[in-house]
């Protein structure tokens, strides 16, 4: 098990190196960083000094190494557009995105699994068929349309919920949370549904098809032949086996939620890192783009690592070190 995890960690590190290289290349080769950082009034000395300061006169590998070690210490340079350190801006905005992603992720996973299991068990039921048909619309409905639709119904027509922003937030250390005020919670409802709905549909469809596959297996037939109760068969025998492939995808989906937050944040003007990123793309603010890329890569890689470790708890076949027999 330890060997497996070490191999995984090494692979993750490799992925991060590649992503770092991409981010660095963006920073280094898209436009001229010196051009971008200095205003109109600049002298030859200014340019020379900045080149030296940025280390642009050194060889590529040296520059890359410097970039990585700076990034590892949380220094991602200065935003072209705002003129402030990127790390500072990111830190300020991260709580908004993380709270939104966490709430909608939990929503998507919990409801996705519940609906998936329900539609698999009641395969030919009316309600199950209805949910399945609705889910295909859900897959075809782009996230931003869901958001607009919700705003139209609940903000414009009914006026129940706010259509933009986070509401009131409470500052706890560097973390600003919207979870502790009534207006913050109200503001969270529509964005988290918007963000979670698509992922929920995907998880539900996957759980359903995996569960149907598992229910066809011999060991389920054998469990039935032993007279086990339906509840035990569905939830103890089938669901556990269903979760093995589903967990991988859920891991990927959690990553996707962080990325899709960009769209939701744009629709609801949610002050998170996603909105920051999309503005950076619009204005070609390369340091912000590069930093965002690095940041969420670390998150993705972390999530994947957690998923791999989760496997050990679910699937005994992977715990090779205690294998006997044969």
């Amino acid at each position: 098990m330890l060997a497996f995890i070490i191999r995984r960690v090494l692979q993750s590190a490799l992925v991060l190196l590649i992503v770092g290289l991409t981010a660095f290349s963006m920073f280094r080769f898209v436009g001229d960083p010196v051009d971008n950082m200095l205003g109109q009034e600049r002298t030859a000395q200014d340019i020379e000094r900045l080149r030296e300061q940025l280390g642009l006169d050194q060889s590529f590998p040296v520059q890359y190494y410097k970039f990585l070690s700076e990034a590892a210490q949380g220094n991602f340079g200065v935003s072209y557009r705002q003129g402030r350190p990127v790390a500072e801006i990111l830190l300020e905005r991260a709580p908004a995105t993380l709270e939104l992603a966490a709430v909608s992720g939990l929503l998507a996973i919990a409801l996705g699994i519940a609906f998936g299991v329900f539609t698999a068990i009641r395969r030919n039921g009316f309600l199950a068929n209805f949910i399945m048909s609705a889910s295909l619309i859900g897959v075809s409905l782009p996230t931003f349309l869901i958001g607009i639709l919700l705003i139209y119904v609940f903000s414009v027509e009914l006026g129940w919920l706010p259509s933009f922003g986070r509401g009131e937030t409470v500052q706890i250390g560097f973390w600003s949370t919207g979870l502790l005020t009534a207006s913050g919670l109200k503001a969270l409802i529509l964005p988290s549904i918007t963000l979670g709905l698509y992922q929920m549909t995907l998880i539900m469809r996957l759980v359903r098809s995996e569960m149907l596959e598992v229910l066809r297996q011999d060991y389920i037939r054998f469990a039935r032949a032993r007279g086990l109760r339906d509840r035990a068969i569905n939830f103890r025998h089938a669901l556990k086996n269903t979760m093995v492939p589903v967990i991988t995808v859920i891991g990927l989906q959690v990553g996707a939620i962080i990325a899709f937050a960009i769209i939701t944040e744009t629709v609801f003007q949610w002050p998170g890192v996603g909105l920051l990123f999309i503005n950076a793309v619009q204005f070609v603010d390369i340091p912000v783009m590069a930093a965002y890329l690095m940041l969420i890569s670390v998150m993705f890689v972390g999530i994947n690592l957690i998923v791999d470790i989760l496997y050990f708890f679910i699937d005994p076949r992977l715990r090779v070190d205690r294998a006997g027999g044969h």
């Binding site: 011999d218 060991y219 054998f222 025998h237 556990k240 699937d315």
Partner: peptide, 13 residues
């Protein structure tokens, strides 16, 4: 059943 390899649930002892 015929196949003992697939008759037992792999995830339960």
């Amino acid at each position: 059943f015929q196949d003992p390899l697939t008759s037992l649930n792999p995830l339960l002892s």
